Simulated scan of single mutants.
Amino acid sequence: MRTRVTGVLIEDGQILLLDQDTDGSRTWSLPGGKVESGETLDGALVREMREETGVMVDVGRLLYLCDHTQADVLHITFEVRRTGGLVGDVKDGADTRPIRDVSFVPLDKLTSLGFTEKFARLCQEGFPGSGSYMGPKSAIGL
């Protein structure tokens, strides 16, 4: 099973998202990616956030741990805090799938971008139950 880390950066009622092709119908997603061999979880997330968004971050609390069994992936998401960088300062080819946009999106617009109401509610409520194993990704609305 592969390990994937993603970061949730929420500032002023907005969440940082990427617009790029995904394995599903939704094109907007949380920034993050695969943990490379020999890399720590926080090291991988700091690297992925910088590569995909242009933002430098500190890794905070564990929000959730989920299985994505169809893709054979362990999905781990952390809260992050911006420490520097410039949103959208992304080099072409930084990801295997081209990144069309990097934007802060109001939390009340998440469902219009294809996120479930459940995920939008978790974001708005500050991820109650954070730090827990949640089972399948669908348990958190992804």
Rank of each mutant, 00 (worst) to 15 (best):
Y64R: 03
T40R: 03
L74V: 14
M49A: 02
P98G: 10
D92L: 14
D58G: 06
P31D: 04
S29D: 07
P31T: 01
D89L: 05
D12Q: 13
L63M: 03
D12E: 15
L86V: 12
M49W: 06
G60M: 02
S37W: 00
S25I: 07
R100N: 15
E39D: 08
L62T: 04
F78G: 00
L63R: 03
K34D: 12
K91D: 10
T69S: 14
R100W: 04
T69Y: 03
L17Y: 12
L63K: 06
S25N: 08
V73F: 08
P106D: 07
D42K: 14
I99F: 01
P106C: 10
G88N: 09
D72Q: 06
A44N: 14
D95H: 13
V57P: 01
L86C: 00
A71R: 14
G88Y: 06
F104M: 14
V46I: 14
L74C: 11
R26E: 01
T53W: 06
T69C: 05
H68Y: 14
D12T: 04
K91A: 15
Q14F: 04
I76E: 09
L30G: 11
H75S: 14
T27P: 10
V90I: 12
L16A: 11
Q70G: 13
V80G: 10
L62D: 03
T27Q: 10
